[in-house]
Design a protein around this nucleic acid. Structure first.
Lengths: 215, 215
DNA sequence: CACTTGTCCTGTCATGCCGTCAGCTTACCG
DNA sequence: CGGTAAGCTGACGGCATGACAGGACAAGTG
């Protein structure tokens, strides 16, 4: 129901047009990976795509508009993250495995989309509702399932009543996102990639179940 | 040892010069709070400070240079965060209080400097070593103390040997930073500010000590 | 094959910000 | 009061932005 892809001036884009549009998006994506967001200019993206700035403005209102498009593509993919939590057991050894796979999958997703996620994070932190909504969509893919798991354990009396499942899940997800964004930062604390993951999994397990995992 | 404040062209700045410089920094700080980083222009900052763009370039190489200055001011204040962890007990009720005060103090600090911290975070995530170093300095104020606490408990055999204190502390600090940056995000998950803090404190306590707090 | 039609791209232009310099004003000091 | 250094700005070439009109191109039509 998204309707057809349209140019800024209202025409519907045909096959060739969509191709250029996509090429512009791809090049923008590359630029985001290789240079600071603040320095990404329309003219550079256009040049890299072998076209002119005017063409860019035919498909996007500005750089931010195109970035939003990329972000939405990324958010559409984020649904797959749900599988990392939904229907998984948090009991015993299975619980430890769930935690490990969640951490692994999450970090991998973030690594794959780190450039665009940086920008989304910034936009959201700056209070831009559009970015904020996209960030929400990505995190929700994990968050609601995680909160449900906590709530379920809580209803069985295995977690204190005054724990707020949404808050705990949200904080854990935020932690994963933050660590993923700054993975390099840990190496200068003398923490290696490989060591990081099990420790994150430990924290996730502790947060969700309130207990240490049985390994 | 920092020597005197100098203009870009090498002159030493006198009283008046320093005042203008500071005014520019103040105005830049305001702009960062009120508009997206990408849209902060030299000319706007200069106008707001009642001076000309040329004057701005006398004191800073570019917007980023001035932002770094602001970030360093902020980092200098971050030493106070250490007091939130250093020499605190993690045992029994005192431990619960330590966790709560850490969360409280950390969120407060982040709230007070949110605009500049957003930019520092972005710069660090983009791999800029200067921003990265500043972020490190701020987080280190809490991180090393926290890691020490974990290591100490570990040496007493109260925490598994395969836990990496640096990784756990880093992850917890990253969590606090991320949650602080996106506090508003939680409200749309139906989590209120007041509920958030104790749940964060719980996670911190669990992470550091491996046990639920005694309240 | 010429012609038409609608899509697609770009040359060009006015506007505005960037970053620099020469030169003017202001403050300080002997 | 004159000299010197600090402080500020007008002005300029250069580049990005964003709008438009018109040219290029593919596909269908007689």
């Amino acid at each position: 129901m998204t309707g057809q892809v349209r140019t800024v001036d209202g025409r519907v884009a045909g096959r060739r047009g969509q191709a250029t549009r996509q090429k512009l998006l791809d090049c923008l994506s590359e630029m985001l990976s290789s240079s600071p967001y603040r320095d990404v200019k329309v003219i550079d993206v256009a040049r890299r795509a072998g076209t002119s700035p005017a063409t860019f403005y035919q498909y996007f209102p500005d750089v931010e508009g195109a970035v939003l498009e990329l972000a939405e593509e990324m958010a559409a993919e984020s649904g797959g993250l749900t599988a990392l939590v939904e229907g998984r057991s948090w009991a015993g050894r299975a619980g430890w495995q769930t935690a490990q796979e969640l951490v692994d999958g999450f970090l991998e997703f973030w690594r794959r989309h780190d450039a665009i996620l940086r920008v989304v994070d910034l936009g959201a932190a700056e209070g831009d509702k559009r970015f904020y909504k996209i960030r929400m969509k990505v995190l929700n893919a994990v968050n609601t399932s995680l909160a449900d798991s906590v709530a379920e354990l809580q209803s069985k009396g295995r977690i204190d009543k005054d724990v707020n499942p949404g808050a705990v899940a949200g904080a854990l997800v935020a932690m994963l996102a933050a660590v993923a964004s700054h993975q390099k930062g840990f190496s200068s604390w003398g923490v290696k990639q490989a060591e990081l993951k099990p420790n994150l999994a430990l924290l996730v397990h502790l947060g969700v179940t309130g207990r240490k995992p049985t390994k």
